[in-house]
């Protein structure tokens, strides 16, 4: 390619203009703005004027027991969803990859929840979770389990949310794992078979290490997504963060402060904390990943 000239530069930016305009206004500017907003301590939304700046939002945030609950709940949610979801989807992907007929058909079915509206499926699940007439309690009843108050008891609200989220997100992970598995050359398996390795050993010593980049990607994406859970809660608990705030997560907290209480400064500060947490996790994963991931 030839070096850029002023003419080509003008042309380049002309082509970029529409996308750049939108992205600057709605992606880049808000990043800076939300950083600033988290320091607004006295803000009038209607006139968009700031009367005072300070760190007050952050101190207030960490003194708010609700925010602490939100942090804790988000943590529980992440721990509840991510490992289980990865294990289940990896197992299914390995089964789907075992050269069976109908593999495409199964893949389609497992992927279905991914294309559906979270709100709609959460409403369907809230019906399944119904304590008296719900399908889940009926099935559990067949195994002798007493009816559970899935959505109305603080103990079971979070497990219900986790079940829904795993169901919803499985398909995405399966597709990514399948793509990763299909990238592993057959020669490794043939070599291992010649060496007499058992199926489990082949999985442990070939599949897992060679799949580690995929695994790494899936876990980063899953963790980020889990930290951001909101729609499911809103729809599952009908516009409330679960019984006794048992499903109050950070994003839900942001939504409450912002949309219900009009505490813009506090809300952006909370969003900023979320961003920092996600950022930190990604960095930690990158460092850990460097040690354990085999890129070939």
């Amino acid at each position: 390619m030839q070096k850029p000239t002023w003419k080509s530069t003008l042309k380049g930016y002309l082509y970029l203009l529409p996308a750049l305009l939108i992205l600057v206004v709605f992606s880049i500017y808000p990043i800076i703005k939300s950083f600033l907003m988290s320091f607004y301590t006295d803000y009038d939304f209607f006139s968009d004027t700031v009367n005072a700046y300070g760190l007050e939002n952050f101190t207030k945030l960490f003194q708010d027991p609700n925010f602490i609950t939100a942090l804790k709940n988000t943590g529980i949610f992440v721990i509840g969803v991510v490992p289980l979801s990865i294990i289940i989807s990896l197992a299914i992907a390995v089964l789907l990859n075992s050269k069976i007929k109908l593999s495409g058909f199964f893949r389609t079915i497992y992927f279905l929840p991914f294309v559906t509206s979270v709100v709609a499926v959460a409403i369907v699940w809230s019906w399944i979770f119904h304590s008296d007439y719900g399908l889940l309690n009926y099935i559990l009843g067949l195994f002798g389990v007493d009816p559970i108050d899935w959505l109305t008891s603080p103990t079971y609200a979070m497990p219900a949310l986790i079940i829904l989220s795993i169901w919803k997100g499985l398909g995405f992970n399966i597709i990514i794992f399948l793509a990763g598995l299909q990238n592993i050359g057959n020669q490794y398996y043939l070599a291992a078979k010649v060496d007499g390795a058992s199926a489990w050993n082949r999985f442990k010593s070939i599949t897992l290490p060679l799949l580690s980049p995929t695994m790494f990607f899936v876990s980063i994406i899953s963790i980020i997504n889990a930290f951001k859970v909101f729609d499911e809660i809103f729809a599952l608990f009908n516009g409330r963060p679960g019984p006794a705030n048992s499903a109050l997560t950070v994003v839900y907290y942001v939504y409450q402060k912002f949309y219900e209480e009009w505490e813009f400064g506090l809300a952006t500060a909370a969003a900023f904390v979320l961003f920092l947490i996600i950022f930190l996790f990604t960095i930690i994963q990158l460092i850990v990943g460097k040690k354990f991931v085999h890129y070939n």
């Binding site: 992205l23 709605f26 992606s27 880049i28 808000p30 703005k33 980020i224 912002f258 813009f264 979320l274």
Partner: peptide, 22 residues
Amino acid sequence: VLLGTMMVPGEMLLIPNFVTVS
């Protein structure tokens, strides 16, 4: 810069964007 912004969760942009849109 664009690559970098992909790191930022969309939820963080919610409030400033709401202000912009209004």
